[in-house]
């Protein structure tokens, strides 16, 4: 019998739950592919959050029951979804007018790297044989009011993803507002990266050790971090 595995930090579902907890009632939200997709299932009871998918649907619901998939009703990751009561379909220019025109409140994306200034790299490794593919990522970070990143704190090989300067090609400069990782929640502030919450069993020093940029400890601030809506009002 193997020894019980040491567990600290948040798993993917817990990370998504922390993001969902910070999304206010009435928000219009766009979710990226991967961990961000999980956020929709953790919207706290009593809040109505409208999810937009950039391929042309506002009011996106969960995946349909097996057998009820419609190949003409999909999300940006090309997976089958449903449309909730009150949903609307629209073409791509309208969809990106919502995004680029500042009408979407919050976007939750994955990341390859985030810098201390809030620069984001999440679309390309820049390798010469890679097929470049950007999709809507650059539009989302340029136009959505608040950009939240949800990601593992380090790469699979343990390299920091939060760094002083991104080495991968940028998606946008100074665009990230908040980072949710398996270890902590970190706000991008004018003073630098501020840790506002730590996952269970994780210390500030643990997070600093796995981060490529200097962190500030705001965990004792009251409140440690603002709701996403009020963060946006300050921008």
């Amino acid at each position: 019998m193997s020894a019980a595995k040491h567990h600290s930090g948040w798993n993917r579902e817990e990370m998504a739950r922390r993001v969902a907890a910070d999304i206010p009632d009435g928000a219009y939200v766009n979710l990226g592919i991967g961990i961000p997709e999980l956020v929709a299932q953790f919207v706290p009871a009593g809040r109505e959050v409208i999810f937009q998918t950039e391929n042309g649907l506002l009011g996106m619901g969960p995946a349909p029951t097996p057998g009820a998939e419609d190949p003409e009703l999909i999300n940006a990751g090309k997976k089958a979804v449903t449309a909730l009561p009150g949903a609307a379909y629209f073409h791509h220019a309208d969809s990106f007018a919502m995004i680029r025109g500042g009408h979407i409140d919050i976007c939750v994306l994955g990341a390859m790297q985030v810098s201390a200034q809030g620069d984001l790299a999440n679309w390309s490794t820049g390798e010469s044989d890679a097929i470049p593919a950007v999709g809507g990522a650059m539009d989302l970070v340029a136009g959505v009011k608040q950009i939240c990143i949800v990601t593992e704190h380090t790469t699979k090989t343990g390299e920091p993803k939060i760094v002083t300067a991104c080495t991968y090609p940028l998606t946008g400069k100074a665009v990230v507002d908040r980072i949710y990782t398996n270890l902590a929640i970190i706000d991008v502030t004018a003073d630098g990266l501020a840790v506002t919450a730590l996952a269970p069993g994780v210390s500030f020093d643990d997070v600093q050790e796995k981060t490529g940029a200097t962190l500030l400890d705001h965990t004792q601030h009251k409140p440690a971090r603002q709701s996403l809506a009020s963060v946006g009002e300050n921008i």
Binding site: H91, H92, A93, F96, G136, M138, D139, A142
Partner: peptide
């Protein structure tokens, strides 16, 4: 970028030869 692609097509159809966008800056 997807939104720039959509807007370039929309602009073309609307007789707008060029436009400015924040997408891809930097």
């Amino acid at each position: 970028p997807q939104g720039t692609l959509a807007e370039r097509i929309r602009a073309g159809g609307a007789g707008i030869p060029a436009f400015f966008t924040a997408t891809s800056v930097g």
